[in-house]
């Protein structure tokens, strides 16, 4: 299948597809980081994670509308930073509420959490449809995010993709630092490793659970805000990504953030490179099949934390 292309063309194709894969990778990482925190650290399956992401996207959409209608045009180019923070707060606050109302009653029944959060996702989808309508909405990008940088004659890099990657990098580093260095992160890891002992040394485990869940949902909100940069948002956009993201998290080894990033990279690169040569659906089938196959042989994922259970 390579025979029709010259060497330089092939290089450019791989570079462009590689870059498209990197953008996909960024969205995967942002979504998977939130899931990895919730699933990996707390063992909770949040099927409504995609809908939290879409909440962030709609928040961004609303913010951009407010900026373009009520504020001077010179400020419009800054709306995205405000939207990022608002998306984080909105999704995080909703996450904290859901944890209080629903999840904390179900910690001992992980399979039931899965069903309950699926119900939540259905309700949220229909809410979005009622409020924003069934059609997809998009935001107008500020001028400085438009266009692309031409590296060579054939390789062009879109700026919004670069920006999404930058956000991903910042968020990933931030999450890594939070989990490793901050008080909350240390408490979370203590609770994961030994809940009764953590509780015995005075950690308020219920509060840690709530904050961790809220943090995971908040990151989903950021993912949604970043998602508006590269695609339009509809009520069911979140559901399209949820299975992929779960596979990313499980493939990476549920409790390892590095593993999550590595697996997001592998999966997104494999998919976008194959997409060029096969049809999109076959590329996806092949990727998912390989991932499921590897998971059957190595269920603990690529990287696994060794904990005595």
């Amino acid at each position: 299948m390579f025979a029709d292309y010259t060497m330089t063309e092939l290089t450019s194709i791989f570079a462009m597809q590689g870059f498209a894969g990197l953008t996909l990778f960024s969205v995967f990482v942002l979504m998977a980081l939130g899931l990895a925190i919730i699933f990996g650290q707390m063992g909770v399956i949040n099927m409504a994670h995609g809908e939290f992401m879409i909440l962030g996207a709609y928040t961004t959409y609303l913010t951009s509308n407010v900026f373009s209608s009520y504020l001077p045009e010179s400020l419009y180019s800054l709306y995205f930073f405000v939207a990022l923070i608002l998306a984080f707060l909105a999704a995080g606050a909703l996450g904290a509420f859901i944890e209080w109302a629903m999840i904390r009653h179900l910690y001992k029944r992980p399979l039931d959490t899965l069903l309950a959060t699926w119900g939540l996702s259905l309700i949220m989808q229909q809410l979005y449809r009622t409020i924003f309508g069934p059609r997809e909405v998009g935001v107008t990008l500020p001028d400085w995010l438009m266009g692309s940088i031409a590296l060579t004659d054939m390789v062009e890099i879109p700026i919004n993709g670069l920006f999404v990657m930058a956000i991903t990098l910042v968020v990933a580093v931030g999450v890594g630092l939070t989990m490793q260095k901050s008080r909350l992160g240390k408490q979370t890891r203590a609770v994961v490793q030994n809940r009764p002992m953590a509780s015995a040394v005075g950690i308020n485990t219920a509060r840690v659970d709530r904050l961790t869940f809220a943090l995971g949902c908040g990151i989903a909100g950021i993912a949604g805000a970043a998602f508006t940069m590269i695609g339009s948002t509809g009520p069911t956009s979140g559901q399209l990504y949820i299975v992929d993201t779960f596979l990313v998290v499980v493939f990476g080894g549920a409790s390892s953030l590095v593993g999550t990033i590595a697996s997001a990279f592998t999966i997104s690169q494999a998919q976008s490179t194959m997409e060029f040569f096969l049809s999109g659906s076959m590329a996806k089938v092949l990727t998912l099949l390989v991932v499921v196959g590897i998971l059957m042989l190595r269920p603990q994922g690529l990287f696994s934390l060794k904990i005595r259970k």
Binding site: T113, G119, I123, Q126
Partner: peptide, 9 residues
């Protein structure tokens, strides 16, 4: 959605 949540909880 309410059915899912209600039955489980």
């Amino acid at each position: 959605g309410a059915l899912f949540i209600g039955v489980v909880m």
